[in-house]
């Protein structure tokens, strides 16, 4: 019974994620596209929960749904109405064919490869505590590098949008 619920949730979340991703590609207004992108991020967070990755799901909601989408909305709203068009380039059809072919190849390879799957899957007791331990034991150098990267990105973003730097005064 519980298994059936997980399967139904997986398919519903898949439809939500892929459907809103398609709406991002087709909808005309850029603000609506960002809102559909948020719905797609929420769907992916739900898929993480069905894969028993609860900490990653919470991080996804906090960073993607909370921060990145608000940043995108600010970037759109700071530029006037003329640049809110979500138009495609004239040669969009061959790009669609190319992306479809690439997706078909990836699906073919994913289904053909003999993955070394564990019987019944891996069971995690707690994910947040284990991720915290992994960040401090084998991944301490990448963890520090990530913090340096975040500081550099923040300084770069502030420097780029400061008025009177590198172009017309804002």
């Amino acid at each position: 019974m519980e298994d059936t619920a997980v399967i139904v949730a997986f398919y519903v979340l898949t439809i939500v994620t892929l459907g809103s991703a398609l709406m991002v590609a087709t909808v005309r207004d850029l603000v609506h596209a960002v809102l559909f992108l948020v719905l797609s991020f929420v769907g992916v967070a739900g898929l993480y929960i069905t894969l028993s990755a609860d900490f990653v799901a919470v991080v996804q909601v906090l960073i993607y749904v909370g921060a990145i989408s608000v940043l995108m909305l600010f970037a759109i709203l700071l530029t006037p109405r003329a640049s809110r068009d979500n138009a495609s380039v004239p040669y969009a059809a061959p790009i669609g064919v190319l992306a479809g072919l690439l997706g078909a190849v990836i699906i073919f390879v994913a289904l053909k490869t003999d993955w070394a799957t564990a019987p019944g899957g891996n069971k995690f007791e707690t994910t947040a505590a284990e991720i915290g331990k992994a960040l401090l034991d084998p991944f301490v150098i990448p963890f520090e590098v990530a913090s340096v990267l975040l500081v550099i990105a923040m300084l770069g973003a502030i420097l780029l949008v400061r008025p009177g730097e590198g172009g017309e005064p804002g």
Binding site: L18, V44, G103
Partner: peptide, 9 residues
């Protein structure tokens, strides 16, 4: 794979 190809498009 499907999400990746939509994102690529």
């Amino acid at each position: 794979a499907l999400l990746f190809s939509i994102g690529l498009y």
